[in-house]
Amino acid sequence: MSKMDNSRRLFIGAGAAATAGLVIAPGVTLLDLAHARPADEAASSAKRWGMLIDSSKCATGCNDCVAACGKENGVASTGHPETDPQWIRKVELKEIKTGTSHSLPMMCQHCAEPPCVDVCPTGASFKRADGIVLVDRHICIGCRYCMMACPYKARSFVHEEHEDQNPDVPRGKGCVESCTLCVHRIDRDQQPACVESCKEGAMLFGDLNDPNSEISKRIATYATTQVRADLGLNTGVRYQGI
């Protein structure tokens, strides 16, 4: 009996791994996303959404994730690069001594101890129960203190008026904004747009609190990095290969 149970568990495990492997293809939902949260149920701290980015798979010059983010969230260039918001950007790294180069996408790291939340005077900058760090534009006064506090330069201030927003992603002049981890998609069991767009499978999205999720297993197996780990912010976005 116990043997049978075991073998069944193994079978399920293999199935899960197979499904998770399939996630590399765009649009395929991860197994650990399959438990839909009903619309009237609040996000819970049982989950902590996170992302693992493998910089060895991320190609210099590829901008797919940035383009997908812009399309999904309506973040477009207005021709003023200094003031244009950027929710996600491709960063090119070159080791000063060895000259080794890396390419990776950089966005809000969704810290467990977010400095932006600590400094926000009105509480507009907040962390949702499932670990997603957001700006509540209804009470953001546009003081930009969070931008001063963020060690990742993840936040942007909206310097100009915007129209034709995506109905799912309200955004407008005078407030601060940043990557929402595509919270509107997560809430309907979809993956962030950037993850879905990555043909190389360099981005893995999942629940860091679930030891059986693909992301947790990868983090348990391979050496992964938190950017500015010295700050002890416990980021939700992790990197592999740097």
């Binding site: 619309a39 009237d40 609040a42 949702r128 129960a129 209804h138």
Partner: peptide, 21 residues
């Protein structure tokens, strides 16, 4: 509804602005 959706991720449609529109 805006506070429920923003802070808790509750996305019932009945009183949502999107539903009005």
């Amino acid at each position: 509804q805006r506070d429920e959706t923003m802070h808790k991720g509750i996305r019932t449609t009945q009183y949502s602005l999107k539903n009005c529109i």
